[in-house]
Computed example of a mutant assay.
Amino acid sequence: MGQSNEQYGDRMFTHLTQGERARLDHLADAVSQYTYRDLAELGVPAGERLLDLGGGTGVVAQRLAEMRPGTEIVCVDRSVALMSEGTGYTPLEADVCDRTTWDRLGSFGLVHARNLLMHLRKRDFVFERMMEAVVPGGWLMVADMVDAPELRRSLRFRETFAQLRSYMEAELGTSMTCATTYAQRMHDAGMTDVGVSYDCLIVGPDKPGAAFMARTLRHLWPDIVSKGYAKPDGADEAIAYLEGGQHWDSAIAFVTAWGRKG
């Protein structure tokens, strides 16, 4: 096992992968209630453009369009293949790790990113560009998932997710701790009204967070095995635990931070 230069979306998790739309829909179903709750609390300046980064299927951009009809909303992702047309926002296919992307984008009253920075090798660069893109009086909101293995009751689930985490950190550059630093970084940069929320994806019957994690394991496990992080049947028990049974457990934490630019 060696250090990889692959980035999330290069090969694994492309928007053309069979089943990727369903996987992302499960994730959106699991976390959007928290995103929409926190967005509703922000006093985004009227008349300002809104930016959603790493927009995936466009669900957050769509909600922003419903909240602010007539507002210019830009939704950026490396691929716009899963976004809908004519839904009140503008899809833009671009790489946020490229400086020229930020030259094109301009400034916004709200810059939002969800489940993006954790997967970027250049997350510090992108975080700085995000703060720069916010107009005075505008808001930055950033959310990512944070691993909390001590909250999981199932030992097998805990062990399997540890193998998944090791793979994603080494092979894709993913960080499952970086979200805990966002609020402090906003404060240190001079932002005001900084806040943070901690929520949790739950394992249980018909829980979308559990379905998302099961699909993620099924998708990645062949590569995890081929690169020596686990044995072929190592995920079977954890997937069965996620997909069925009358039991409840903690899957992973979801951390959101926000701040207003002075």
Rank of each mutant, 00 (worst) to 15 (best):
Q246W: 11
E171V: 12
F212W: 15
Q62Y: 11
R129N: 00
S175C: 08
A94Y: 00
A30D: 09
T57H: 02
G43E: 15
A189S: 14
A238M: 06
M12V: 14
D52T: 08
A257Y: 06
L82T: 01
R114F: 07
V142Y: 09
G58V: 10
T177A: 15
W221D: 02
I239D: 13
A251Y: 02
W102N: 01
E237K: 13
Y36A: 11
A46R: 15
T174D: 03
R23P: 06
D98H: 06
M176A: 12
P222Q: 05
R49K: 14
R165C: 08
G137F: 02
A65C: 11
I202R: 11
P136C: 05
R123Q: 11
Y36H: 12
S175R: 09
R63A: 14
G47S: 06
V44K: 01
M186W: 01
F157K: 14
D77E: 05
C178D: 14
D77R: 04
P232F: 03
A253S: 15
V76I: 09
G70V: 04
Q62H: 14
A113K: 02
V194R: 07
H26T: 11
T17W: 07
S107M: 10
D233M: 05
G173F: 08
L155M: 12
P149I: 08
T256P: 00
L120F: 12
E237H: 08
L82F: 05
F254W: 07
Q33S: 11
P222W: 07
P222I: 09
S79R: 00
V255W: 12
E171S: 08
G173H: 03
V142D: 06
Y229A: 01
Q3C: 04
Y182M: 03
R129Q: 10
L217K: 09
D25K: 09
P149A: 03
F127D: 08
R260Y: 03
V76D: 05
V111P: 11
Y241S: 11
R123W: 13
E132K: 10
D193Y: 02
D193E: 15
V134K: 15
T57A: 12
E72S: 11
D233I: 01
R99L: 00
H26L: 10
A214M: 12
D98A: 10
D223C: 04
D236T: 14
D52N: 09
D103G: 03
A189G: 00
E66D: 10
A94G: 01
L217G: 08
Q184V: 04
G190C: 07
R129I: 00
G106L: 10
L39W: 09
D193V: 01
E85N: 09
G70N: 10
Y34G: 05
W258L: 07
L155R: 15
C75K: 02
A238N: 11
L155S: 14
T256A: 04
V111S: 07
G262H: 12
A61M: 05
E243S: 14
